[in-house]
């Protein structure tokens, strides 16, 4: 997304160094004269209904069949990669600090807050296995899963792609992501695994064999790969 011409967020202009700007009414600027909504960084925002989400997912399924999961993942991945670039600029400008010199946990909160404000859900990141090359992300209130309801399988491919793309861009190494459990499977929240390709492949294999998120998590923590 690129900043929209001629839109300037008034609160941002008044308080350029303000870092707590994530309530909906602070973060977004509703311009009734132009009929537009822009965010803190002057990017245009569009509101989408649940019908839109259903239409997107089901329409894509009708067009490309089972490949729709991959398409959604790729859309998310591309988005995440680009967002990593934009995020770096915003972060360094806002906190006057180099991204690579900042604490990872802090960077992650800074990245995800706009998503929380815009309704993509709250999250929780588990970095305890970071040294072993993987991490877990829990998403509460996924837009996609909440909208589609209980369909018995993971549905949040766009999130998985987004995480893969963003973390690839952030650490400049190829990473992938898979959704291990999903609200749309009747779980209370969605759980994602981010890591190198071999880890994700192993998790995907176990998942196909019928392993639960908890089984997969246990095996990964024990350092197991596909036998």
């Amino acid at each position: 997304m690129t900043p929209a011409q001629g839109y300037q967020h008034q609160l941002h202009q008044t308080h350029p160094t303000r870092t707590n700007h994530y309530s909906l009414r602070d973060y977004l600027q509703f311009d009734s004269q132009r009929g537009s909504i822009t965010d803190w960084y002057d990017q245009r925002i569009a509101l989408a209904t649940e019908d839109f989400v259903i239409g997107l997912v089901e329409g894509l399924e009708e067009e490309v069949g089972p490949a729709s999961a991959l398409v959604m993942y790729k859309i998310g991945e591309e988005w995440g990669k680009r967002d990593a670039v934009v995020f770096k600029q915003h972060f360094e400008q806002e906190y006057q600090r180099e991204l690579r010199k900042s604490a990872l946990t802090f960077i992650l909160e800074a990245w995800w807050w706009p998503f929380i404000t815009l309704g993509w859900g709250n999250w929780e990141v588990d970095l305890t296995e970071q040294k072993n090359g993987f991490m877990f992300i829990n998403i509460f209130d996924s837009v996609v899963a909440r909208t589609l309801g209980d369909v018995g399988k993971p549905v949040c491919y766009i999130y998985a792609g987004l995480f893969a793309g963003f973390f690839t861009g952030l650490i400049q190494k190829p990473l992938s992501c898979i959704e291990l459990q999903c609200y749309a499977m009747g779980e209370t929240y969605c759980k994602f695994l981010v890591g190198k390709q071999d880890r994700i492949d192993a998790a995907a294999f176990w998942q196909n064999e019928g392993a639960t998120a908890r089984d997969i998590e246990k095996r990964l923590r024990q350092g197991e790969l596909v036998k």
Binding site: Y22, T105, F106, L108, E109
Partner: peptide, 30 residues
């Protein structure tokens, strides 16, 4: 910010505009 919230009697703005965000920062730095 707390003083301003008291002045305007607006706790919601304090919570949504600051506290919830700041809590995640506190957590991020343990």
């Amino acid at each position: 910010l707390a003083a301003a919230a008291m002045l305007f009697a607006d706790l919601d703005a304090l919570r949504d505009g600051f506290l919830l965000w700041y809590r995640t920062i506190i957590k991020a730095f343990k």
